[in-house]
C-alpha cells in the first residue's frame, strides 16, 4: 500500500490536550454540546466508554475461554434469562464432537452420499474442495439393518483415515463359501452424529449365518476396520 492509499484520521479540532474528560461512570455533560470543545468532549467520552465496554467484554470472553479449556463450563453457567436460542445452540454444538465432525466430513465427500443427502435438489454453488487431513483416533461404527430379516451388527470402530476420503467395502462374506455374500452395504454419518453408520440391506432369502468384510479407505485402499453382521434364522 502506498502512502497516498493510507487512511489517516482527520486532524483534531482542538488545539491543546483535553484535561477535563468526564468520568466513564456513565455521566456526561448535563447540556447538549454547543461548541467544538463540547463536541470534542462528548466524542472523547463516547470513545473512551466504548473502549471500556469492549475491553471488559473481551476480558470476560477470555475468562470464559479459559474455563472452556479447563472443561468446567456447562449449561448451568448460562444466565437464567437466556432464550431457547442459546440453549439449543449449546446443545447442538455439544453433540457435535470434533471427531464426529472430521469423520462425517470425510464421509460427506463421497459423491454418492452427497447426492443422497441432498435429495433431488442440488445445493446452489456448492463446490467441494480438498479438506484438511483429519485428526487421528478411532471412530465408532454402528450398523443399520434394512429388510425383513432379523439381523444384528456387531459394534466396532474404524481407524481415522489419513485424509478426507470415502469408505468402501467389497461385501460381507460368510466363512461358509457356499453362502452368498451381502453386497448391498453403504455408509453415512450415524444419526447421533458421533460416528459412522453402515447401512446393510439383508435380502429376505439370505441364509442365516455370520458375515464379515473389511472397510477400506476409498483413496488409499488401506483397511480401516472390520464390519460383522449376524443374520438370524
Amino acid at each position: 500500500m502506498t502512502a497516498s492509499e493510507r487512511m489517516s484520521r482527520p486532524s483534531p479540532a482542538r488545539e491543546a490536550p483535553h484535561r477535563g474528560i468526564p468520568p466513564v461512570s456513565g455521566s456526561y455533560p448535563a447540556n447538549p454540546p454547543q461548541s467544538d470543545a463540547a463536541v470534542d468532549e462528548v466524542v472523547a467520552h463516547a470513545v473512551r466508554v466504548g473502549y471500556q465496554v469492549i475491553g471488559e467484554n473481551i476480558r470476560q470472553g477470555r475468562a470464559a475461554a479459559d474455563r472452556l479449556t479447563a472443561g468446567d463450563y456447562g449449561v448451568s453457567d448460562v444466565p437464567g434469562e437466556l432464550t431457547q436460542l442459546g440453549l439449543r445452540l449449546l446443545q447442538l454444538t455439544r453433540e457435535m464432537s470434533s471427531t464426529a465432525f472430521d469423520l462425517v466430513g470425510a464421509v460427506f465427500r463421497d459423491p454418492t452420499l452427497q447426492n443422497a443427502i441432498r435429495g433431488s435438489r442440488s445445493a446452489p454453488q456448492a463446490q467441494p474442495e480438498p479438506a484438511r487431513p483429519a485428526a487421528g483416533g478411532d471412530v465408532p461404527l454402528t450398523c443399520n439393518i434394512r429388510g425383513n430379516r432379523r439381523a444384528v451388527g456387531e459394534p466396532s470402530t474404524l481407524r481415522h483415515p489419513e485424509q478426507a476420503t470415502s469408505l468402501t467395502i467389497a461385501g460381507l462374506i460368510s466363512p461358509n463359501p457356499v453362502l452368498p455374500p451381502l453386497k448391498n452395504v453403504s455408509f453415512s454419518g450415524s444419526p447421533d452424529g458421533r460416528g459412522i453408520a453402515a447401512n446393510i440391506v439383508v435380502p429376505d432369502d439370505q441364509p442365516a449365518g455370520t458375515y464379515s468384510g473389511v472397510v477400506c479407505d476409498g483413496l488409499t485402499h488401506k483397511p480401516l476396520g472390520t464390519l460383522t453382521v449376524q443374520v438370524m434364522p
Binding site: 447442538l92 465432525f101 484438511r132 478426507a164
Partner: peptide, 20 residues
C-alpha cells in the same frame, strides 16, 4: 462441512455459539 472442511466448519460453529 462438505465445502470448507471440518476444521473451518467447527470453528464457525464455535463462533456461532458464542454469538448466540
Amino acid at each position: 462441512i462438505s465445502t470448507l472442511g471440518s476444521h473451518v466448519s467447527m470453528r464457525i460453529m464455535e463462533e456461532t455459539q458464542a454469538m448466540a
